[in-house]
Each structure stands twice: as structure tokens, then as C-alpha cells.
Design a binder for these strands. Structure first.
Length: 421
RNA sequence: GGAGAGGUGGCCGAGUCGGCUUAAGGCAGCUGCCUGCUAAGCAGUUAGUGGGGAAACCCGCUCCCGGGUUCGAAUCCCGGCCUCUCCGCCA
């Protein structure tokens, strides 16, 4: 979230961010509450000061063996008044937090202003495959080869779930291993993480309160299924002050991701393109504020390196303000081209969040030379989302015989298998 | 799930019948001073957060969290969370 003081001092900037991100505008309520809060604090603290002084006098009087009944009676009234102001204050602060949690991060000036039509392609890599036959979509390929089973997924879990089998399952596992090992070689520390997290954790990275409808909630234990490894991975040190010199922290984790996809019915739903559960390898960085922008570039490059190694054509798009996530300040989407569905599929979003998330999750770092602890900057990016990456592999590496060649770099991870037939 | 113990400052650790404890003492750190015997001595200093102020500085809050009792709570009462030990259960 944004610092209250920052909001107070930059209302125009914040209002523009709200508008550019198409968020509901409750800035005036918030600013009104903020000034009320400060008025109440002033009054309450004056009373508390009086109470403290007089209580001390009462203590001194009693020690000297004198009576202090008058002062006690007087302080009873003061204390009651202070208490009722405290109750008011608590209510005001609850409301402030309520709105504060709903104000989006301010987009970086690099971001094009506007809706998704303003997303700007910043570069592309590779060529669309030139096949001498009509390419099949992945669900046809997978079904014929017996490596993809949509029906079985529906049987056990309902629509939006799928099953991989044999070489299909193995390729998924190979991709996960391949990606993690590449990132570990780039000094990301591998993690295994909880897939269920508390509401507080969801709030820390910004999924709650806004995205409650898009996530699975376990009512009996009030836990939430993670929609991305970003959530647990970024929150690992929430609520703490890191020792000086802790940064940068670079982490990688593979987790399944769970998304209700409420309201997305009928859109890109064939095959594995949009499902309720998918695997993903995620990168998270926690860095010094000054280095955040260059860390975003290297993070994006690390994700791109996977696509390049797999020889999959892709394009990089800088998201416009209206397409940015709630917490994001700047974001590159990586879209891989899949020839069977003839579409650019989003396989990664690489974002920087400035101090928006670290403030929400109360993560700070102690400065080297004393002074106040400060909020580090956080970043994350998928590298990569699995099903869509695999869709691109199946479709782009398909042969006229209906088989799928295994990308060179994956062969060692597939036990030497070169073709799925 | 059952029984017990416990949660105090960067760390260890005290806190008596509620007031003189933001908090003793020790360690670590920092700053001076001193010293030829140095894994030494002396003095001072070292939290976070909120409000006010141009600033110096003043004030509030914080002894796991939230309530309560009280003029006043680290200290008493209630609820919650977490940690540890033992038992049970379990992949």
C-alpha cells in the first residue's frame, strides 16, 4: 500500500494512479479520515499527558501519606474521555486502513497510459515455425498421443482441470527441473513452499482484498490456496526487519497455482490454456530501492532465457497503466507464440512493486550506518508458467506424423527421449 | 487432539505487595578518554512507531496480540496467536 503521508502530500498523483488503473476513487474519504484522525490524536494525547502527570502526583502523594481523592476523581473523568477518544480513533484508523488497502500502486512513468490496447511491444525473439502442414492444437495432439486427458480431469475435479500422462507428465516435470536449475545457476535460491496461506499473507502481496473472488478459500481453517508462488515467496520474512546487508534476496520456487477464473468462462478455455490449477516456476527478488529498475530488466532477461533455450518465439510487452496489476508499478509480459492455436500466450509477467508490497507486509531493512529501517523493493516474474509453455512446445515442435519432437535442452531431462510418438 | 511450561530491548536475562521500570544487570555495537602489556580500564551512548514543530525539541503509544479492571498495569483478569517438552494420532 501507499504511505499515508505520501498520499496526503501527493493527492493529485494518487488520484491519477487510481484513474489510470481504473480503481474506484475513494481518495476524498481517505483524506477526510486522515485529517480527522490527526485532530482526534491531538486531543487524546493531551488528555493522556495530563493523566500521566497527575497519576505521578497521586503516586507521590500516597507515598508521602497524603490523600489524593480529589485528583483521583478528576482523573476518572479525564481517563474516560481519553478512552472514548481512543475508541473513535480506532474506528477511524480501521476505515483508513480499509481504503488504504484499496488504493493501487502508482504506475512508473515509463508505462504507457491507457487500456491494454496501449500495451507496447518492446522486443521480440525468434520466428514463428514454418510448418508444411496445418498444425494441430495441443489438445488434439496430446489426446492422440495419450499424454493429455481433459476428460479425466473433468471426471475427478470438474471443468477447468486436466490430466497429463506418460511423456506429457514427464515433460512437465522435465521443464520444472530445467527451469529451476537454470535459475539456481543464476544465484536464485530454491524454495519449497506452503500452498495454503493466511489472509494476512494474501494481503501482504496485494491479492486481498481485491481478488478474493478469484481465489479458493478453505473455510474450515480460513486458509487460501495460492494463485502464484509469489505470495508465499515474497512474504517469507513479513513483519520483520532484515539485518543490514541482507539484500538482494533472489528466490525461485516451483508451485502449483490455483485460480477460480471467475468470470473468465468461455475465454481461451480449450485445452490447457486457462485452467483452475497449473504449475509455475516463479522468481522473486527483494532488493535495494535504487537497484529495482535494473533488477527488473535482469529478471525479465532470466525469464526470457528460458524461452530462448527452448527455442520458442516470443514477444515482450510493456503493460499500459490500465493493464497493470493492482500492486504493480511496471510490468513486462512475455507472450509465447503457439502455432496450433495461432495465438500469443502469456507465459510470464515480470513486475516491480516498488515498496508497495513491503509496506503492506511490514518488511523492512536496517540501514548499514544506523538510521531508520526502510522498506525494500520487491519484484517477481514467472519463469515460466508451465502449461502454456508446454502448449507452445507441443504445437511448435509437432511433426507431420503427429508426433512431438523434444526440444534439445530438455532431452537430458527426459531420459534421452527425443520424440514423443 | 490431551497434559504441562513459556513468550520482556540486537542477544542473554531480572522485574518484589500494580505507581520511583522503556524497562535493572550482563553481552554485543558505537563515541570519547586513558593505558606498553590489549579476548584490559573509565565515561558516555545505542529501539520502533504515531502526533506537533522550520529546527532544537516536546508529547502519545509499544514488555507476543486483542479486550477488561484501575486515577495508574510488563506486573491482576479474560480471549487469541506462537514456541518448547511429554503423550496420543498420522504419510
Amino acid at each position: 500500500m501507499l504511505d499515508l503521508k505520501f498520499i496526503r502530500e501527493n493527492p493529485d498523483l494518487v488520484r491519477r494512479a487510481i484513474r489510470d488503473k481504473k480503481a474506484p476513487d475513494h481518495l476524498d474519504e481517505l483524506l477526510g479520515l486522515d485529517s480527522r484522525r490527526r485532530a482526534v490524536i491531538g486531543e487524546a494525547e493531551a488528555l493522556k499527558h495530563e493523566r500521566n502527570v497527575v497519576s505521578q502526583q497521586i503516586a507521590d502523594a500516597k507515598k508521602a501519606g497524603r490523600e489524593a481523592a480529589d485528583a483521583i476523581v478528576a482523573m476518572r473523568a479525564v481517563s474516560e474521555r481519553a478512552q472514548s477518544l481512543d475508541i473513535q480513533l480506532r474506528e477511524i484508523e480501521e476505515q483508513i486502513l480499509h481504503w488504504q488497502l484499496r488504493i493501487p500502486n502508482v504506475p512508473h512513468p515509463d508505462c504507457p497510459v491507457g487500456d491494454e490496447s496501449q500495451n507496447r511491444e518492446v522486443r521480440s525473439w525468434g520466428r514463428k515455425p514454418a510448418l508444411a502442414f496445418t498444425p494441430a492444437p495441443h489438445w488434439e495432439l496430446g489426446q492422440k498421443l495419450g499424454i493429455y486427458d481433459g476428460v479425466a480431469g473433468t471426471t475427478v475435479a470438474g471443468s477447468g482441470f486436466f490430466v497429463l500422462r506418460g511423456a506429457g507428465a514427464r515433460m512437465q516435470r522435465a521443464l520444472i527441473n530445467f527451469m529451476i536449475e537454470r535459475h539456481v545457476a543464476n544465484e536464485y535460491v530454491e524454495h519449497r513452499l506452503p500452498y495454503l496461506v493466511t489472509a494476512k499473507t494474501m494481503q501482504g502481496t496485494g491479492q486481498l482484498p481485491k481478488l478474493a473472488e478469484d481465489m479458493y478459500h478453505i473455510e474450515s481453517d480460513d486458509l487460501w490456496l495460492i494463485p502464484t508462488a509469489e505470495v508465499p515467496l515474497t512474504n517469507l520474512r513479513a513483519g520483520s526487519v532484515l539485518p543490514a546487508g541482507s539484500l538482494p534476496l533472489r528466490s525461485v520456487a516451483y508451485t502449483p497455482c490455483f485460480r477460480r477464473e471467475a468470470g473468465a468462462a468461455g475465454k481461451d478455455t480449450r485445452g490447457m490454456m486457462r485452467v483452475h490449477q497449473f504449475d509455475k516456476v516463479e522468481l522473486v527478488k527483494i532488493v535495494e530501492p535504487e537497484t529495482a529498475e535494473s533488477e527488473l530488466e535482469t529478471l525479465t532477461a532470466d525469464a526470457e532465457a528460458i524461452l530462448q533455450a527452448l527455442e520458442l518465439p516470443y514477444r515482450v510487452r510493456l503493460l499500459a497503466t490500465g493493464d497493470l496489476s493492482f500492486a504493480g508499478a511496471k510490468c513486462y509480459d512475455l507472450e509465447v507464440y503457439a502455432t496450433g492455436v495461432d495465438a500469443w500466450l502469456e507465459v510470464s509477467s515480470c513486475s516491480m512493486f516498488t515498496d508497495f508490497q513491503s509496506r503492506r507486509m511490514d518488511l523492512r531493512v536496517r540501514p548499514k550506518d544506523g538510521g531508520k529501517p526502510y522498506h525494500p523493493h520487491t519484484l517477481n516474474g514467472s519463469a515460466l508458467a508451465l502449461p502454456r509453455t508446454m502448449i507452445a512446445i507441443w504445437e511448435n515442435y509437432q511433426t507431420d506424423k503427429g508426433s512431438i519432437r523434444v526440444p534439445e535442452v530438455l532431452i537430458p531431462y527426459m531420459g534421452g527421449l527425443e520424440e514423443i510418438a
